[in-house]
Simulated scan of single mutants.
Amino acid sequence: MNVFDRLAKKLQRDRTTLNEDYHKYNYIKDEVGNRLADRVYDINRKFKRGLDLGCGYGHVSRHLTKDAVDELVMCDHSALVLEKAFKPEDTTINCQKMAVDEESLPFEPESFDLIISSLSLHWVNQLPQTFSQIMKCLQPDGVFIGAIFGGDTLYELRGSLQLGETEREGGFAAHVSPFAAIRDIGGLLNGAGFTMLTIDTDDMRVGYPSMFELMDDLKGMGENNASWIRKLHLHRDTMFAASAIYKELYGNEDGSVPATFQIIYLIGWKPDPSQPKPLERGTGQISIKDLYRLDEVVKNATEDMVKKTAKEIPYPQDDGDGKKR
């Protein structure tokens, strides 16, 4: 089932390049890209070949150095966006750009040992299929590090538009695209074969003078609605009603309105025999019920280990010839 009009989304992203100050709309993507780059450096490994899937204007790539990756492939569905994307500041990285649809990856199996994706996969129709393609492109023991908008993103805008349209038109349509729920991401990654998963969320709240500035910024960053069932025209009366409801329900004391962006960060590894394996069930030595006194348990376990080690080390023996054995 296709939820999003991929051609419409590509055209929306193409239009962002027509703005002379297009970079000023990318504050959310730049911040998330910076945080995602930190997660790359948290892995104590230098990668040989990496892929930045849906690189946008280079929100992650610009932060990478030779210490992280030797070769980097930057790809995006929009060739116009890709043309203006910032390459890594470290010019010693062998970097190339390719126009690629995230739903159909053209790379050979096991081509990369690192794949990163920042805020692009929420427009993919078949997310399980894309995860499977990413898994196929990774080398054994390769890692996928991504960020995707979560289900609570723009809940204020979604609710206000629904209430405003219901009040003025007697019903409402979808004006904010659906997002993945965090409870589903782990299952999708597991279903694609990823192991040693790490998933966490981060809520970013940004203040705007009104709902209209928020919608203008969303359009500027290419994040306006692209679902097939989207309503192409929103009446002026409906928009003013929604703006008033937004400010009434969520407005700050200074008159501004907040917008929430829920970011889901995910890390998954391609299986390899060299990876650590969990212990067999029943081999644990510490019960969960003792977690509240964990410091005491660790101290006792350490003392027991020291005593056991001391018993196993033989003391020097004198056989009468004056030599210690």
Rank of each mutant, 00 (worst) to 15 (best):
N2H: 05
V3E: 03
V3G: 03
F4G: 12
R6K: 12
D14T: 06
R15K: 04
D21P: 09
N26D: 15
E31V: 08
V32Q: 03
G33H: 06
V40N: 02
V40K: 07
K46R: 13
F47E: 00
G54R: 14
G56M: 09
G58T: 00
R62N: 06
R62F: 01
L64T: 02
S78H: 03
L80D: 12
V81L: 04
L82I: 03
E83Q: 15
F86T: 15
T91Q: 09
T92E: 13
I93Q: 14
A99I: 11
V100Q: 06
L105I: 11
P106G: 04
F112R: 00
F112M: 09
V124Y: 12
N125G: 10
I134F: 10
K136D: 07
L138C: 15
D141R: 11
G146V: 05
A147T: 07
I148M: 10
F149Y: 05
G151V: 01
T153L: 07
T153R: 03
L154I: 12
L157R: 00
G159C: 15
S160A: 05
G164Q: 00
T166S: 08
T166H: 08
R168G: 01
E169R: 11
G171N: 14
F172N: 02
A173R: 13
A174V: 14
V176M: 01
S177F: 07
I182V: 13
D184F: 09
F194K: 12
T198M: 14
I199N: 11
I199T: 08
T201S: 13
D203L: 14
R205L: 03
Y208I: 01
D217V: 06
L218G: 07
L218A: 06
G222N: 01
N224W: 03
N224S: 09
N225M: 10
N225Q: 03
A226P: 06
W228G: 15
R230H: 02
L232K: 14
L232H: 03
A241Q: 15
S243C: 07
Y246M: 02
Y246R: 00
L249K: 13
L249P: 01
D254N: 15
G255N: 02
V257Q: 00
P258S: 05
T260A: 00
I263N: 02
Y265A: 07
L266C: 12
W269G: 04
P271Q: 07
S274D: 15
P278R: 11
E280Q: 14
I286V: 08
S287G: 08
I288P: 11
L294E: 10
K299F: 14
N300F: 06
E303C: 12
K311D: 08
E312C: 10
P314S: 04
G320S: 05
K323H: 04
K324A: 11
R325H: 09
